[in-house]
């Protein structure tokens, strides 16, 4: 395995005594990866990010960033290589985008002021740079937040729900940007999200969290393979009754979803052709048949009891 940029060992944290919010979390984010941190709302994604950045005091365990244990002595050195966008971006509404960026440049030493125009260009806000942030839409604020985290050309970019509030076009642009940063500059990107398809489209690695516990952590590729033995397909037919009858003949279990939709499991793609032939021979009209995203199934089965 290549070098790890973020590594947590035995991380524990609770807001209250009654409940553990993060339990023995072992996070491993390899260098150069796009790591999707996936989990339903309230599963501890933001809490984990805050623990990584030391905004919350962990009860036990270690956080290692760039191969060094994160503590008071390494804090400034490590953070100087990190750009973070934590939940709702921190922006001064009474100032414009330029002033907001200027403040961020002042805090981090050694950033050339030309960089401001560059990042504005990257997130496509050059036109709106003189406008007060108060008047920005949620998506624009999100993009400005991203611009601020990009100012220092970070080695590690931490994005907490980056597509929140973005429109479909904005989501696609964000996805392209993330891939580009990763490919061009080798930036390691850590994204948290509760949307599976978002993670699936862009990430190389995935970690799934529920109730503060890591349920699964590996590459997206092996996640897909782990479930590829069986596929779930959904089909639309004219008569559900006839279909069920035909399926019973070959002992195929199925679930009726709604009106004319059925769902069943098949072992391989060849089996789909076989099914169609079977149904057609019984005079069932098949209107559509499609393979369900099995990651989604996995995600749901992992995150729901």
């Amino acid at each position: 395995m290549s070098q790890l940029i973020i590594e947590t060992e035995n991380l524990n944290f609770s807001y209250t005594k009654e409940r553990k919010d993060i339990e023995n979390l072992e996070l491993k984010v390899p260098k150069g990866s796009i790591y999707g941190f996936l989990g339903p709302n309230g599963s501890g994604k933001s809490t984990t990010i805050r623990l990584i950045l030391n905004l919350l005091k962990k009860q036990s365990g270690n956080v290692t960033l760039f191969g060094e244990i994160f503590n008071a002595n390494t804090r400034i050195k490590s953070l100087s290589k990190v750009g973070a966008l934590i939940e709702n971006p921190s922006l001064y509404g009474h100032l414009n985008a330029l002033e907001n960026l200027k403040i961020a440049v002042n805090y981090r030493q050694n950033i050339a002021s030309e960089r401001i125009e560059e990042v504005l260009e990257i997130v496509k806000l050059t036109q709106a740079k003189e406008k007060k942030v108060k008047a920005y839409s949620l998506g624009m604020k999100q993009r400005l937040g991203l611009a601020i985290s990009l100012l220092s050309n970070p080695e590690l970019l931490i994005l907490d729900e980056p597509t929140n509030g973005l429109d479909p076009k904005g989501i696609i642009e964000m996805r392209t940007l993330i891939k580009e940063l990763n490919e061009k500059y080798g930036t390691t990107i850590f994204i948290s999200s509760h949307l599976l398809n978002e993670i699936e489209k862009v990430c190389t690695h995935v970690g799934i969290i529920r109730d503060g516990k890591m349920l699964y952590q590996d590459t997206v590729k092996s996640l897909k393979q782990s479930k590829s033995k069986n596929m779930i397909v959904e089909l639309e037919v004219d008569s559900v009754k006839k279909t069920i009858a035909s399926l019973e003949k070959i002992n195929k279990k199925n679930t009726v979803l709604e009106d004319s939709f059925l769902q069943l499991e098949v072992g391989s793609k060849e089996e789909i052709t076989f099914l169609i032939d079977l149904l057609r021979s019984e005079n069932v009209n098949v209107y559509q048949i499609f393979i369900k995203n099995n990651l989604e199934e996995l995600f749901l089965s992992l995150t729901e009891n």
């Binding site: 939940e87 921190s90 509404g93």
Partner: peptide
């Protein structure tokens, strides 16, 4: 309040400054 209103403290404390 300027800082609280803009949710700024979490951002400031995650910056590489003391």
């Amino acid at each position: 309040q300027i800082e609280h209103k803009s949710l700024g403290i979490k951002h400031l404390f995650a910056l590489p400054v003391p």
